[in-house]
């Protein structure tokens, strides 16, 4: 194969079926857990994302054979709006992994992706949580650097409260109060994805996934804190993942109610434990440990490539707030 055999370009409407076919061919290989993806799921991941989509493909004989893609997030970085994008679904079809000489088809596709989307006036940070194989590829060829080796706060076994905490309610649709809550929380964050109804509604409408939205309100009905739960596989099976956690740090009484609700929910749901990802500088990292949660290693490494000089991995490590909601892990 030569460069003339491949067209590397941005996604065009109509590519999705070929992308999904390639995805299923790539990821079914050697993964017993793999569940084939459909076009609906692809559309949710990319074209339905209210923050937009980032997709570059390599096409050979009319078929997509490689992809470099990302899910953008609307961010506030040091008080100003910006965009980060999480790399997901990077792939090269096995029949084309020898396509093109060094640096190879995927790297060529990725370089075109970065040229198109990375920059001070575009995505200021690309990030991902690769496992080992993708980590080597990312650090060796794509200039990704380590933000942190990711730990997970875990609680197992879960000792539930005897009854459901009456102050904790199951939320319906997210509304404007989510943004109010985010604004109360985000003062301490140097960088964070904007939590508003648009983002969270999209994030927690993922096809095939069931999420439980928990909230605590004050007497006036104002949302004081929220958590989103899903039982799934994260390192181990049947973990109750706290996909989102948004509580002002000066309101531990709200956190206590939500944490009790999560314990009760995990117990009723038959989860083997609870898992939560928050930055280790967050007050919640220490607070959860006081509640019996423990800091577990994980196979994941948070990596980034930055397009604005000050947003180094070291800066991100110390200032970037993220939860599992910012990732595609759950």
């Amino acid at each position: 194969m030569t460069a003339n055999d491949y067209e590397i370009r941005e996604y065009l409407p109509g590519d999705e079926e070929s992308i999904v076919r390639c995805f299923n061919d790539v990821f079914t290989d050697g993964d017993d857990r793999f569940v084939g993806r459909d076009v609906e799921s692809w559309r949710w991941s990319f074209t339905d994302n209210p923050a937009g989509w980032r997709v570059y493909v390599a096409v050979c004989d009319g078929r997509v054979v490689a992809q470099c893609a990302a899910q953008p997030l609307r961010m506030i970085v040091e008080g100003a709006e910006a965009t980060f994008a999480q790399g997901v679904d990077s792939m090269t079809h096995p029949a084309h992994r020898r396509g093109l000489k060094r640096p190879g088809l995927f790297v060529n596709t990725a370089n075109a992706f970065f040229d198109r989307y990375g920059g001070a006036d575009r995505d200021v940070v690309h990030f991902g949580l690769p496992i080992e194989q993708a980590f080597k590829m990312g650090t060796t060829f794509l200039k990704y650097e380590v933000v942190r080796t990711q730990t997970v706060l875990g609680l197992a076994p879960v000792v539930p409260p005897d009854t459901w905490p009456a102050e904790v309610e199951r939320l319906g649709a997210f509304d404007e109060q989510v943004r109010w809550l985010y604004d109360r929380c985000s003062g301490a964050f140097g960088a964070s994805a904007i939590r508003d109804a648009t983002f969270l509604e999209w994030r927690f409408s993922r096809p095939g996934a069931t999420y439980v939205r928990l909230g605590v309100r004050d007497e006036q009905g104002i949302l004081r804190g929220l958590a989103v739960y899903r039982r799934t596989h994260l390192v181990v099976d049947d973990v109750g993942c706290v996909c989102e956690w948004l509580v002002p740090p000066e309101e531990p009484e709200v956190a206590e109610l939500l944490e009790r609700g999560l314990r009760r929910l995990a117990h009723e749901d038959g989860a083997t434990g609870l898992a939560l990802v928050v930055p280790d500088w967050s007050p919640w990292f220490a607070w959860m440990q006081e509640r019996g949660w423990r800091v577990h290693p994980s196979v994941y490494t948070m990596c980034s490539r930055h397009w604005v000089r000050r947003l180094t991995p070291l800066w991100l490590r110390n200032h970037w707030w993220y939860t599992l909601a910012d990732t595609d892990l759950v």
């Binding site: 730990t151 280790d280 500088w281 440990q289 423990r294 800091v295 577990h296």
Partner: peptide, 12 residues
């Protein structure tokens, strides 16, 4: 993990 089981906590 064993250290955490005997009362150690973790900070960055």
């Amino acid at each position: 993990m064993l250290m955490q089981s005997i009362g150690f906590r973790v900070r960055p």
